[in-house]
């Protein structure tokens, strides 16, 4: 028989059945946990568990083959005292973060402002500008990027049209990091979409009031748009900063995993990877990972502390 909700007998039976179950086993809760299980397993098995494990490992020497050996804080001490590559990789990453994040946000906001002027074909442009964000962190794009900026790459072929002989951008330590910054800025699509959504939220009549108050475009941008967009700027800045600290794939592909030339693209994450999977110094790599986490946390906390001075919530 087909049991339907409109059949009173069936409904009573079912209620009795579930009532019995819940009395016996707390089944309602159990089903809930059952459905949550995939997430629980993922979260505890793949995130929290490894994090605790790596925190433990950061106080050990561990080469994957023999048991971890407790060494106390010596991994951390070594990092800050006797490891020049740690400082180099930190410098590279900070340089990248400090330049790529603002440049990317400026690019995202500029394009969002242009798109927000109500042009025809907006959905098409929006999708086109967003595309690099989807592709950007992929291996394929990084390989493509390497070709574009190579000695005989697209950029130099273009420059050759004007008689300029460009260097090999990716193998010149003066420019190599910049190619990665440009690659990162090129992926401005996702903050752009968020900026665009934020701009749409600002009521048109506020701009009308401002224009009656005599404010020109620039003053409206500075005094109205930016403050009203500040929660979105704040959000994008934090997300992009965290992303930039974590930047790995493009650096790995473009330098072939070396961080060369002369460590100019030795990102912190790349160094961490080398220590872990090149030299099998899992203990030291774990310590590096925790320092990165602390660094990101400090940056984020600092951003939140300054927020009350420049982020305006309605």
């Amino acid at each position: 028989m087909d049991i339907t909700a409109s059949d009173p007998a069936a409904r009573t039976n079912r209620r009795a059945a579930t009532g019995e179950l819940s009395r016996g086993f707390g089944s309602r809760e159990r089903y809930g946990y059952l459905f949550l299980a995939p997430w629980f397993i993922g979260f505890f098995g793949l995130s929290v568990g490894p994090m605790i494990w790596s925190f433990y490992l950061s106080f050990t020497n561990f080469d994957l083959l023999t048991d971890p050996k407790w060494v106390g804080a010596s991994n951390y001490i070594r990092m800050f005292t006797t490891d020049p590559k740690f400082m180099t990789s930190m410098r590279v990453t900070l340089f990248f973060v400090v330049l790529s994040v603002p440049l990317k946000l400026i690019a995202a906001l500029t394009v969002a402002l242009l798109l927000n002027r109500g042009m025809k074909g907006l959905p098409i442009y929006r999708a086109l500008f967003y595309l690099p964000s989807l592709l950007g962190a992929s291996v394929a794009i990084a390989i493509l990027w390497r070709q574009i900026f190579a000695g005989n790459g697209l950029v130099n072929k273009f420059l050759a049209l004007f008689g300029i002989a460009g260097p090999s951008w990716i193998s010149n330590p003066s420019y190599s990091l910049w190619t990665l910054i440009i690659l990162s800025v090129w992926q401005f699509g996702s903050p752009m979409i968020i900026f665009l959504a934020g701009l749409r939220q600002i009521p048109a009549d506020v701009y009308e009031a401002a224009s009656l108050d005599g404010a020109g475009r620039w003053r409206q941008f500075i005094k109205i748009t930016l403050p009203l967009l500040s929660p979105v700027v704040f959000f994008n800045a934090i997300i992009q900063t965290i992303e930039a600290f974590k930047n790995f794939t493009p650096a790995f592909i473009i330098s072939g995993g070396t961080g060369n030339p002369i460590n100019s693209t030795l990102f912190y994450t790349l160094y961490l990877y080398q220590e872990a999977f090149g030299f099998f110094r899992m203990g030291y790599a774990s310590a590096l990972a925790w320092v990165l986490l602390a660094l990101v946390a400090i940056f984020t906390a600092f951003a939140f502390l300054t927020a009350k001075y420049w982020v305006h919530y309605d």
Binding site: P203, D205, V206, E208, A209, A210, S211, L212, G214
Partner: peptide, 20 residues
């Protein structure tokens, strides 16, 4: 002539105050 130079002031239905 631009709005601000017409010698007018306007009160909007939504008030259009600067929220920040």
């Amino acid at each position: 002539v631009t709005p601000s130079e017409r010698g007018i002031a306007m009160v909007f239905q939504s008030y259009a105050l600067y929220p920040h």
